[in-house]
Design a protein around this nucleic acid. Structure first.
Lengths: 344, 344
DNA sequence: TTGAAAGCGCTAACAA
DNA sequence: TTGTTAGCGCTTTCAA
C-alpha cells in the first residue's frame, strides 16, 4: 500500500516541544495529559510552543504504553444495501455515538459484508486499533465471537445471540429489544378488542432472532392459533402486502393481524384496502418498530409496538464503560410499549 | 475512560513467539510480514507457535516504526438524520470500501455532526490512527482543511470546494460529479424537444455547491430565461412538489422543467398530475441523480441525468493510492449522461 | 515540581 | 538465511 500523497515526513515530537520550551519530555507529557503538578507558567509556555509547532501527540506511541486508543469500533453488516436505508439503525447508531462521545471516545464504523472483509476486520479489531467493539448482525458461526474472545477485546453485541451447538455467545453482553414481550403486547391488545381470528405476518424467523421472537410472542398469547393464520414474509413492504393477500385468500374471515414490522404493515394495509376491508372496523392491525415516517403516514395511522432505539444504542455504549454494571456478561432486554393510533 | 470489561491483560508478544519457537524476533517478524528469506521449515514452525499462542501483532508498535496503519478514515456529516437514508451516499460509500479493500486498507467511518465532534475527530485524524482520509460535506471555514494540511494527512475531498476568502481548499484533491455539465445536458435535451418555456426547480444553491452548479448549467443553456421560471427548493420531495405548484401559479404556460434532483422531480410530477398537466405531452420533465427506486417508479418513469456514483467512490479511494496520479492536487469532475425514460 | 532513565512491541539496518 | 542492535515517540516509575 503506497500512498500517492506522502504524509508529512517530519512531524514535531514531544522531544522537540521539550527542547524548544526548555523543559524535559516528562514535563511536556504532564502538560499534555493535564496532570496537576506543573507550575502554571511552565505549563503555559509549553502550551505556547505546542501550538507554535503544531504538535499533535503520536497516538501509536501513546497506545504502546497506555494500551488505550479512545476509539470504539461499531461493526455492522449491510446486507442487500439495506442498512443505510434503515431508520432503525440510523437511530441506534446515533444513540451509540452520543454516548461514546460523552465518554470521550471516538466511534469508528466498520463494515463486514463480503467474505474477504472478515480477516481484515479481524486484524483491525485484534490489532489494538480500538478499546472495544459494539457488534451487530453476526452470522452464526462466523467466528467473530471467538476471535473477540481470544484477543480479549471488550465487546457488546446487538440482538439476541443466535446460538449454535458449541457457540459460547452467552459469554458476552447482549442488548436486544423485547421482541417477544412486544409481540405479546400487540396480540393481547387485539384479543382485548374482542378479535378472535388473529393472523400474523412474520419476518424471516429462520434467519433473524427478532423475527423468531416476535412469532414466539404471538404464539405465547395464541398457542392454539391455526397454522393457516400465519404467513412468513421478509420484513419488506412488498412482502407484507403479498403475505396479507395470501392470508385473505386462505382466511377471508380474519378480523385482526399482528404484522411483525411497520414496513410490512404498511404493505398489508394497502392490500386490505384493495380487498375492500375497512381498518380497523373489519380488520384491526398492529405493527412493530414505531418508525417515524411510516406509522403516521399510513391510512389509518398505525397502531404499533414502540422500541426505545436511541436508548438501546446508548445502553450498548454504556455497557462498555459503566463500572457499576454487570459483573458477569448478560443479555439485557429493553422493554417495549404499545402505541395506539388508528389501525387497532 | 474506564472500561468495564478489562482487555486481556497479557497478550503474547513477538518475543514470546520467538522464544517458544527457538528463533529470534527478527525471524518471527519476517514470517509475519511474509518476507521471502526465511527457510520454509522455520517459517512453518513459527506459524504453528503463532496460532498456538493466538498471537496477534500489536499494531501500535508496528505503526510506531512503519508509520502505516492500513486504515483510511471516511469522514461524513449526517445533517438532519438524512445521510443514512440517502441511496446516493450508500452507493458512494460502497465504491470507496471496495476499492480500499483491494488495496488491503480498512475503511473506518467517522461522523462529524455536533460542534464537539470536531476536536475529537481532529485528534483522531491527527493522531496517526489512519493513513489518509476521504472527507465529505465540509462546512466552509470549519478548519478541517487546514488541520489536515498541518498534520500532513493525505486526503481526498468529495464535492466541489466551496471557497471562502483565504481558504486554500484547492491545495487538495477533490472529486465531484459534473453537476454543471449534467444540468446542461438536461436543459439542452428539453430545448431539442422544441420546448421554449423551460422552468427549473433548484436545490439550496446558497448552501450546496451541487445545487449552485446545476443552476449554473441551466443558465449556461438559457442565459435569458426569465427569473420567474426559477424556483428554489431544498432537495426534498415535498419541496419539489411545492416548487412546481409555485411555478404553475406564476407561469401556467410552462412546457418543460429541469428539476435538480430525482426526489424533487417525483414531487413535481405529482403536482403536475394534480394540476391536470400531462407528462411529457404538456410538460416535459428531466431530473438529476438517476436513483434506482425513484426513477422507475414515477409515473411516467423519469428521464434524468445519471452519475456513476460507485465509480466516483472508487476514484476517490484510488486517488489516495495510485502513484501514477496527479502530481499537483486537482479537482476531478466525473462525467454524467442523460438517461431517457418517459418524462421527457 | 521537575528530570533521568527504562521500556512498551515492533521493524530495519547491519553483521554474521 | 538468521541474529543483534538500535530506535520509533511516548508514559511512568524513581530520584532529585
Amino acid at each position: 500500500m503506497v500512498l500517492t500523497q506522502r504524509p508529512n515526513p517530519r512531524r514535531p515530537t514531544l522531544q522537540d516541544v521539550a527542547r524548544r520550551s526548555g523543559v524535559s519530555k516528562s514535563t511536556v507529557s504532564r502538560v499534555i495529559n493535564d496532570e496537576p503538578k506543573v507550575r502554571a507558567e511552565v505549563a503555559d509556555r509549553v502550551r505556547e510552543v505546542i501550538s507554535e509547532l503544531g504538535y499533535v501527540p503520536n497516538q501509536a506511541a501513546r497506545q504502546l504504553v497506555t494500551h488505550r486508543t479512545h476509539a470504539i469500533a461499531v461493526v455492522v453488516t449491510e446486507p442487500d444495501n439495506r442498512l443505510f436505508l434503515d431508520p432503525f439503525f440510523d437511530c441506534l447508531l446515533r444513540g451509540i455515538r452520543r454516548e461514546l462521545a460523552q465518554h470521550g471516545a471516538q466511534a469508528v464504523l466498520l463494515f463486514l459484508d463480503e467474505a474477504d472483509d472478515y480477516p481484515r476486520v479481524a486484524d483491525y479489531l485484534g490489532g489494538g486499533h480500538v478499546d472495544g467493539a459494539i457488534v451487530f448482525s453476526l452470522r452464526p458461526g462466523d467466528g467473530l465471537h471467538e476471535m473477540i474472545d481470544r484477543i480479549g477485546l471488550p465487546a457488546v453485541f446487538g440482538g439476541r445471540p443466535l446460538l449454535r451447538d458449541g457457540d459460547r455467545a452467552h459469554r458476552h453482553a447482549h442488548v436486544d429489544g423485547d421482541n417477544r414481550g412486544g409481540a405479546r403486547q400487540a396480540v393481547q391488545h387485539l384479543v382485548s378488542l374482542g378479535r378472535t381470528r388473529i393472523a400474523t405476518v412474520t419476518g424471516p424467523y429462520d434467519q433473524e432472532t427478532s423475527a423468531a421472537d416476535r412469532l414466539a410472542g404471538y404464539r405465547d398469547v395464541l398457542p392454539d392459533a391455526p397454522p393457516d393464520l400465519t404467513e412468513r414474509a421478509d420484513y419488506t413492504r412488498q412482502a407484507g402486502a403479498d403475505a396479507m393477500a395470501a392470508l385473505l385468500g386462505r382466511r377471508p374471515d380474519l378480523d385482526a393481524a399482528f404484522v411483525a414490522s411497520d414496513l410490512m404493515a404498511s404493505g398489508a394495509l394497502q392490500t386490505l384496502r384493495a380487498h375492500g376491508r375497512r381498518v380497523p372496523e373489519d380488520v384491526a392491525v398492529v405493527g412493530f418498530d414505531d418508525l417515524t415516517g411510516i406509522t403516521e403516514s399510513t391510512d389509518p395511522p398505525l397502531t404499533t409496538i414502540h422500541q426505545d432505539v436511541d436508548g438501546m444504542g446508548r445502553l450498548m455504549a454504556r455497557l462498555l464503560f459503566d463500572a457499576e454494571r454487570i459483573k458477569a456478561p448478560a443479555t439485557v432486554v429493553v422493554p417495549t410499549r404499545l402505541v395506539l393510533r388508528g389501525s387497532a
